[in-house]
């Protein structure tokens, strides 16, 4: 099956503030990312704050133009931002943010907001539009009488349902979700995660799911890419990567998840904090925090290479993955 979304060598640099002595070095927020997303597939992007996962998500939708590299949607290059072709394409790819209250217009009713994309993309109007809005509200589990309410009258979970319904209005083929459940309580989070899973099954929407919550990502994604300082350090199926993480960073990440009933002992504790992207360490960016760094790690950055069937990792220590998988 051909790819729905293909990213090649994506790089995004942000200029630092100008100092007295000229320009400060550019921050490479995303640094050479290659991704493929097939129709109907869900790809999880995991990483700590500053790893470039949100920037990557915005580039995949063409909202943030890449400094270099290309994004192809359905085999065709992403049109430039704000161009008529890009606007038309946006009907097929939608974005769900973390904070639903910020994503919604406080002065429009829920029904108006859900119907707005239909108007913008001239998909439906009048009675047909109202019918479609009712249908969308039912799909995400909102009551019909809530259509006349304003965002502040709904709970956090309900607001996120509105955002999801609005994103679904144009029947998109791609949904990029940036931390969609992070602001929600556990019990509500489970409701929204189930909703996303159901929609994915019933509509076959391809999804890029950006999150720092490994438990949620594992539950919703087929495939997972772990980012560290702008690069993908490991990529594998969701079942494999959490059961047998290979890269030392992924291993630390997986072991850092507190699990009820498990004591703190035996967890991998990383030294230090993620480095500043403006001062990227030489060699492997992870080596200053890595417990098993070798001299080679200080010198050369490891490329993302296949280490087993359908999985790739960027680590000098994984030349023979069998030893580590054991």
């Amino acid at each position: 099956m051909s790819a729905l979304l293909q990213a090649r060598d994506l790089v995004r640099c942000y200029e630092g503030p100008k100092s007295l002595f000229g320009k400060s070095p550019a921050v490479r927020a995303v640094d050479g990312v290659n991704l493929t997303l097939r129709p109907g597939e869900t790809l999880g992007i995991v990483g700590e704050s500053g790893s470039g996962k949100s920037t990557l998500g915005r580039m995949l939708l063409g909202i943030d133009p890449p400094t270099s590299g290309t994004v192809a949607f359905d085999g065709e290059a992403m049109p430039p931002l704000q161009s008529p072709r890009w606007r038309a394409l946006r009907a097929q790819m939608q974005l769900v943010y973390q904070d639903p209250l910020a994503a919604l217009d406080r002065r429009l009713t829920i029904a108006d907001q859900i119907g707005e994309p239909l108007e913008i993309h001239r998909l439906a109007k009048g009675a047909e539009r109202s019918e479609r809005v009712r249908d969308l509200m039912a799909q995400v589990g909102l009551r019909q009488d809530q259509g006349d309410r304003y965002p502040h009258e709904l709970s956090g979970g309900q607001r996120q349902r509105v955002v999801i319904a609005r994103a679904l209005a144009t029947s998109p083929r791609l949904l990029v979700c940036d931390e969609p459940v992070s602001a929600l309580d556990v019990s509500i989070q489970a409701q929204v995660v189930n909703l996303l899973r159901d929609l994915q099954e019933s509509h076959g929407i391809a999804m890029v799911f950006i999150s720092h919550d490994l438990k949620v990502v594992r539950n919703i994604c087929d495939h997972v890419a772990v980012m560290y300082l702008g690069r993908i350090v490991e990529e594998a199926s969701s079942d494999e990567i959490f059961a047998h993480p290979l890269h030392p960073y992924t291993r630390a990440l997986v072991s850092s998840v507190p699990i009820p009933g498990k004591p703190l002992t035996g967890r991998i504790l990383l030294k230090g904090e993620p480095p500043n992207p403006a001062q990227r360490p030489a060699g492997c960016a992870f080596h200053p925090r890595c417990g098993s760094a070798k001299p080679a790690c200080h010198v050369a950055a490891p490329p993302l290479e296949p280490v087993a069937l359908a999985r790739r990792a960027a680590c000098h220590l994984l030349v023979s993955p069998q030893d580590h998988a054991a």
Binding site: V186, S187, A190, K215, R218, N219, F242
Partner: peptide, 22 residues
């Protein structure tokens, strides 16, 4: 609360949310 937490191992079942809100 326990049932609503997604798991990091085992099979990927549907989550069991608490219906409604506080």
């Amino acid at each position: 609360l326990f049932d609503a937490i997604p798991r990091l191992d085992g099979t990927r079942n549907r989550l069991i949310p608490i219906t409604g809100t506080v």
